[in-house]
Nucleic acid binder design. Structure first.
Length: 771
DNA sequence: GTATTATCTAAGTCT
DNA sequence: TAGATAATAC
């Protein structure tokens, strides 16, 4: 069969093993997606009905691309009938079909994190709890992890262990908050992200008829990125696949980076306990990266204790060694990266789209952005403040949400007085209190406001006008297409003209344009083919809004598949690959994150994250760190990441290797610096604090091309306490102590500016000045 | 009820 | 730094 010819032996075995449970442990770059794609194609060629296949992917974009590829492979459009998508979107779809079984309307709203947070804040206010103790984010985290482990608010409150933990941390009322939170969601006919999975479990658990229906419908299950599934997802798959056990999971424990949101690596490790006849396939050949990249990644991951044994290897070329660079400020790091991209582009005739800049936190994008702009390099930032989380977009979406689901109180509160229509906070508070007392949704209350006199007449009239406006939109839900209705809402609500009139500055223009962009997106949707054969039906607003909350900009159709450098967090880069990868901000307390330093488990997750970052690279990988960085508007000094000292030198570009130091550094300097920047109310003037900052003139940016004047390995051994030495970056210094043996031999050197650094002698090319 | 100003606090990763 | 919220004036 021609399909199989394009695969290696193990890949073929994995693909041909269609029936029964199987697990594919797929190392980075080993053709995991390929195997999944081909397996589905193979199933289709064998005559399996696409309607019987469910494939769960990590992003919707991945699903879309996979579908397109399968269509090519089997040269048929049959593939579009495979149910393929993320857990959240697939099960949201099923939940809408079965909603009434759970007491939800099928047009329930999906609340995003902002909605959830705002509910929590309101509850805290009502219970008069201090939001410094009850931090909304933490509370949500706790509720989320409860849900991911299928602990309902009732279970939670009945579980003495959980409630004791809360009491001990001074948050005894957390369980109560959880309960009220769930009541609010239900009253709003809304589910949060975790509810989508939780409620799917409830559905399949409590409604055997539904379970059987979907078990009959789906006969083959494929799950990608299985290492990042949580308990809730695990159970859904287990329940659905119980009938046929035709389950293929694909994953790599070394790339598990979502434990923080409940991913449970045990799901992979315990597969053979759940399925005694499990077949395991290990894909260990890397087709993506050079030997240098594979080598360095292997060396890094080796430092983790917990992992499935496997040897990733490659037949690819050696390639260039990994380059390190350091700069004194984060802005310089940016211009250094931009300049390197510029050079590589010309020297190796690469396109912008072949480059990716990866970072640990979204906040780091800014320094990169500015430098790229200065160098006229086109770029695109993924994540961060996404399109859908902009205020103006949320405002319009809130109207649309309210029209679709009138019980959506979060949406209602957002727009009831926007644009201003004279309904102030006091009135709104009264309404909320009253709705709560009567135990009805806000909408039910204001819909019948005539009969109540809790508000002044004039205010009541304004509210009734608002209600009537929304009602008039609702009338058109089934008859108008998404775009016609949405633009009617934008104009009728006054939001359009408000935005139009606020274009007096750049921000205002942006806002207006964003709103226009949303509308034109809806227009495009309305005009799209519905996919169904000769379906003359219109595409409604309800359809458009269905999974808008699940939409991320990584999912965006690459409309302008133009040339640009990609900027994203390492998390977002999972599953992607680029010829040239820059990993920036390799600093202690940033990567690994300060918050991960407390436990081995979290530190290992950071290391896996680094592993993921490294293995995105095909041809070359560049690492960099900065000696200082702005955080909260303050300049903070930083030390090189401990991960740099784990890099194996033979894969590192010699001329840059001396930038590696061990994680330990002078405590005296660190303290001194902290004092002057954080304690003193007057932070150091910027010019003074960053003496080395220069206006991105390439000459003095990085030491990348600096001539190497280091001593040889043997000479490193001859360095003794008391010697005066010279370091390319730090200058003259005196050796204070020496510790460690061989590879780990390091010296504490006190330099002339009174900073002492701990240097790994194998990297730090010290010249001996005086014996 | 609304507009303006002052003060606070946050940035860890994501569906 | 910047956005979110509280305090204040109108």
């Amino acid at each position: 069969m021609s399909l199989l010819e394009q695969l290696n032996d193990v890949q073929q075995d994995a693909v041909k093993n269609t029936d029964g449970p199987s697990m594919i442990i797929a190392g980075a770059g080993s053709g995991k997606t390929r195997v999944l794609t081909y397996k589905i194609a193979y199933l289709l060629e064998k005559g399996v009905d696409p309607f019987n296949i469910m494939a769960l992917t990590f992003t919707n974009k991945a699903a879309r691309e996979m579908k397109a590829r399968i269509e090519q492979l089997v040269s048929s459009t049959e593939a579009r009938n495979v149910w393929m998508g993320t857990f959240h979107s697939i099960f949201a779809r099923i939940l809408r079909i079965e909603a009434e079984k759970l007491g939800f309307p099928s047009n329930f709203t999906i609340y995003d994190t902002d909605d959830s947070k705002s509910i929590i804040k309101k509850i805290l206010k009502e219970l008069q709890l201090d939001d410094k103790i009850y931090k909304p984010k933490q509370i949500l985290g706790r509720i989320s992890s409860a849900k991911n482990n299928l602990i309902s608010h009732i279970d939670y409150n009945n579980n003495p262990e959980l409630t004791q933990v809360d009491k001990d941390s001074g948050k005894g009322q957390l369980g109560q908050i959880y309960t009220i939170y769930q009541e609010r969601l239900r009253k709003s006919s809304a589910m949060d992200f975790d509810d989508l999975l939780f409620n799917t479990n409830v559905l399949l658990r409590d409604h055997p008829d539904v379970l059987i229906k979907y078990q009959r419908r789906f006969k083959y299950f494929l799950v990608d990125e299985y290492q990042d599934t949580n308990h809730s997802q695990y159970l859904i798959v287990k329940r659905l696949a119980a009938q046929t056990e035709n389950l293929t999971v694909v994953g790599d424990d070394a790339q598990s980076i979502y434990a923080f949101r409940g991913a449970n690596i045990q799901n992979i490790l315990n597969m053979n306990k759940d399925y005694s006849d499990l077949k395991t396939f290990k894909l260990e050949q890397n087709y993506r990266s050079t030997q240098n990249i594979v080598g360095i990644a292997n060396a890094i991951i080796r430092n983790n204790k917990k992992q499935i044994k496997k040897t990733i290897w490659t037949d690819n070329q050696m390639g260039e060694k990994i380059r390190l660079s350091s700069t004194s400020t984060d802005n310089e790091e940016g211009s250094n990266v931009a300049r390197t991209i510029f050079e590589v582009k010309h020297n190796e005739r690469a396109n912008d789209s072949e480059f990716a800049i990866l970072y640990r936190t979204n906040a780091q994008s800014r320094a990169m952005e500015e430098s790229l702009r200065r160098m006229n390099i086109r770029y695109k930032i993924y994540g961060g403040l996404s399109f859908y989380s902009r205020k103006e977009i949320k405002d319009l979406l809130a109207y649309l949400r309210l029209v679709i689901n009138k019980n959506d109180s979060e949406a209602l509160l957002r727009v009831i007085n926007y644009p201003k229509r004279g309904i102030g906070q006091t009135s709104i508070d009264k309404l909320r209190l009253e709705a709560d007392r009567l135990n009805i949704s806000l909408w039910s209350l204001i819909e019948n406001l005539e009969n109540s006199n809790i508000l002044a007449k004039s205010t009541s009239i304004r509210i009734i006008e608002f209600v009537n406006m929304i009602k008039s939109f609702q009338l058109d839900l089934k008859t108008k297409n998404a775009y016609d209705l949405a633009s009617a809402v934008a104009k009728g609500s006054g939001i359009y003209s408000t935005m139009y009139n606020s274009r007096d500055d750049d921000e205002g223009v942006m806002r207006f344009e964003n709103m226009e962009e949303l509308l034109s997106g809806i227009k495009e949707f309305s005009e799209e083919e519905s996919g169904e054969v000769d379906a003359p039906e219109i595409r409604t607003l309800e359809e458009f809004m269905q999974d808008i909350a699940l939409h991320t900009d990584a999912d965006d159709k690459d409309k302008d598949d133009g040339e640009y450098v990609t900027l994203m967090t390492i998390h977002a880069a999972k599953g992607l690959e680029f010829p040239y990868v820059f990993i920036v901000g390799m600093e202690e307390n940033l990567f690994p994150s300060m918050l991960a330093l407390n436990s081995r488990v979290e530190l290992e997750e950071e290391r896996r994250l680094f592993y993921v970052a490294l293995t995105r690279g095909e041809k070359r990988v560049f690492l960099s760190y900065s000696e200082s960085r702005y955080k909260w508007g303050n300049l903070q000094y930083s030390e090189p990441s401990r991960f740099l000292s784990e890099l194996e030198p033979k894969f590192i570009d010699d001329q840059t290797a001396d930038l590696i130091m061990s994680e330990e550094t002078s405590k005296t300097t660190a303290k001194k610096v902290n004092k002057s920047t954080t304690k003193g109310k007057t932070p150091l003037p910027k010019t003074k604090a960053t003496p080395k900052t220069t206006k991105s003139t390439p000459e003095n940016l990085t030491p990348i091309n600096r001539e190497s004047r280091g001593v040889s390995d043997n000479q490193a051994n001859s360095i003794k306490v008391g010697m005066e030495v010279f370091h390319d970056r730090f200058g003259r210094g005196k050796v204070e102590t020496i510790e460690g043996e061989g590879k780990n031999k390091k010296a504490t050197v006190k330099f002339k500016n009174n900073t002492s650094k701990v240097l790994l002698l194998q990297f730090a090319k010290l010249r001996i000045l005086k014996q």
